[in-house]
Design a protein around this nucleic acid. Structure first.
Length: 234
DNA sequence: CCCTGATTCGC
DNA sequence: GCGAATCAGG
């Protein structure tokens, strides 16, 4: 099994999305975990909290107040994406799109988010909260299913009428939702085209589809609907 | 034991 | 460039 562009792309995306090497290897098929790690390094995708390597002492995020009372998590406002704070430092790269669940098994066109600048400097973690209460995470960190989520009803994925006609590949830019509708090759294949949830490649509604709380491996059902077009089925 | 990623090194 | 073997922490 060789590293085709497609497979490399899947590797990159999943790696940056925080998937483990094992998961990636399983998804790709035909390669070992080691192969994935080796490739990732050769691609310069390094960095990601290693269980082995001593991590830089992380600056204390928040002094823990001796307040034992857990505050009732107030549902976050619909969108709390910080409009790019005036930081000269490289902002934490946006996590690429993840698992997509769709009734009519759509293929995903993976818009490979540009390679991240490998930065080892500990940086302040800034998060934004998306629809459904999902919380963005840096590639390395894995939050337990915190479920801060107010059961927010998400509207079905529909393009707004005025652009329902076509948002083609050529129309895509960083301001409009890149959620694919239909299948590539079909005459009416197009993209959502709505205004994006700032900081995300998708609109608010599709962010709800794209970003989901990651459960511990054991609790995860059979291979979740694989993102990125899925692995080549063997 | 299981898991993880990092590294090495023969191919 | 590739990946098995190995290492080492959780």
């Amino acid at each position: 099994m060789s590293w085709t562009d497609e497979r490399i792309d899947t590797l990159k995306t999943m790696w940056e999305a925080g998937q483990t090497a094992s998961q990636i290897a399983e998804a790709l098929g035909g390669v070992s975990r080691n192969a994935v790690i080796g490739k990732a390094h050769r691609l310069g995708l390094q960095s990601r909290p290693s269980p082995v390597k001593a991590n830089e002492p992380v600056a204390v995020a928040a002094p823990v107040a001796p307040e034992p009372a857990p505050v009732a998590p107030e549902p976050a406002p619909v969108v709390a994406a910080p409009p790019a704070p005036p930081q000269p430092e490289p902002a934490p790269e946006p996590v690429a799109a993840m698992a997509v669940e769709d009734e009519d098994d759509e293929d995903d066109v993976e818009e490979a988010t540009a390679a991240p600048a490998p930065v080892r400097e500990p940086q302040p973690i800034l998060r934004s909260v998306g629809p459904g209460g999902f919380v963005r995470q840096s590639p390395g960190e894995q939050q337990p299913p915190a479920t801060p989520a107010p059961p927010r009803r998400l509207v079905p994925a529909k393009p707004s009428p005025e652009i329902a006609g076509k948002t083609t590949l050529l129309d895509l830019n960083d301001r409009i939702c890149k959620w694919p509708l239909g299948h590539p090759g079909e005459p009416d294949f197009h993209f959502c085209g709505d205004k994006v949830n700032p900081g995300f490649p998708y609109c608010v509604a599709h962010c709800g589809h794209a970003y989901q709380a990651q459960l511990p491996r054991r609790d995860r059902r059979p291979p979740p609907p694989l993102p990125f077009g899925g692995p080549r089925v063997r």
